[in-house]
């Protein structure tokens, strides 16, 4: 009970920190929208009025506290530039981002686990060396290069010309597949090197444990050894990595992919919000990501305690 309470206090402090830093950065030092909202030749009183509407005339603490209240009541206000409610923007863009990122995220992790298992199992052989060599190569290629390269190879007349160049007009399964393939392949390629390396290290660490040696001595077949003993006992680091990378991949990854392919998801919306100074959107995206992140942290910790009695 004390530990749970401790976790919750810890989580609240983290949320406070994240919201404070992002508020300072994106709102207090962020772009001033006064002059984009009013036209030329505004009078002093008009300027004051707009600044008042945007809450620019309030003191720092007041604006920050208002922000926290908005966040916890999920009353996020309306976008400055389009006037649309932030809640409805999130409801519109989040499914797009999830549909865009999840296939690549899942396949990238599964492939990483499979390749990591193969490499760990055949440690030191040529297949291990091939897999680790390819991982390092993959880690050395920039995300942007992969995206441009795949786009040229798969969606232009200079390559196979199979998929649409950019955009997101999804109506049914076939159009979804058409638009999602190139971004998914890019995401898999860019994460596969890191994933494989990480999982390989996890599996090798696990297979050097005593209980694996005992199982081997008792004549467990290589397949049972890998599947039942190594993979199952590595579930804790695997789930940690997956849980923690979800919010980061969905937001950070979609920022680039969506800006590049012109897909109306949460990444593009938040990037546009940074450059146009659309504070309600920014505050919502950063604040909610932080909250989700902290909740995941608390939940993971809690699950471990349930699953693994050794953790105390």
């Amino acid at each position: 009970m004390r530990i749970i309470l401790h976790n919750i206090i810890h989580g609240l402090l983290l949320i406070l920190g994240v919201t404070l830093i992002s508020f300072l950065l994106m709102v207090w030092f962020g772009p001033d929208q006064t002059y984009t909202l009013i036209g030329k030749n505004a009078t002093a009183s008009q300027i004051m009025e707009v600044r008042h509407e945007l809450n620019y005339d309030q003191p720092f603490m007041r604006r920050y506290l208002d922000y926290l209240v908005e966040l916890f009541t999920l009353d996020l206000g309306a976008s400055n530039s389009s006037g649309e409610q932030v809640n409805s923007i999130l409801r519109r863009t989040l499914p797009v981002s999830l549909a865009l990122m999840l296939p690549g995220f899942i396949i990238g992790n599964l492939l990483g686990i499979v390749l990591g298992l193969i490499a760990a199992f055949r440690k030191g052989t040529w297949s291990d060396r091939l897999i680790t060599g390819l991982s390092v190569t993959g880690m050395s290629i920039s995300f942007l290069i992969i995206i441009i390269g795949l786009q040229v190879l798969l969606s232009t007349p200079y390559g196979l010309n199979l998929f649409p160049v950019r955009g997101w007009q999804v109506e049914d399964l076939s159009s979804y597949l058409a638009y999602v393939t190139v971004p998914t392949l890019s995401l898999i390629l860019v994460t596969l090197g890191y994933n494989t390396r990480f999982y390989r290290a996890v599996f090798i660490e696990e297979s050097s444990r005593e209980h694996i040696r005992t199982a081997r001595a008792f004549g467990a077949s290589p397949a049972t050894l890998m599947w039942r003993h190594v993979l199952k006992n590595s579930l804790v680091p695997i789930t940690t990595r997956i849980m923690f990378s979800i919010p980061l991949v969905v937001i950070s990854g979609s920022l680039l992919i969506e800006s590049y392919f012109g897909i109306p998801g949460i990444g593009k919306v938040s990037f546009d919000a940074i450059t146009s100074g659309d504070q309600p959107i920014l505050k919502a995206v950063v604040g909610l990501t932080a909250v989700i992140f902290v909740l995941i942290q608390i939940a993971t910790d809690f699950i471990y305690r349930l699953v693994d009695p050794r953790i105390s």
Binding site: S22, M26, I251, S252, I274, L282, V286, F293
Partner: peptide, 11 residues
Amino acid sequence: SIPFYLFVAAV
């Protein structure tokens, strides 16, 4: 806890 690209872009 802050999404990396979002943070870097904001700074």
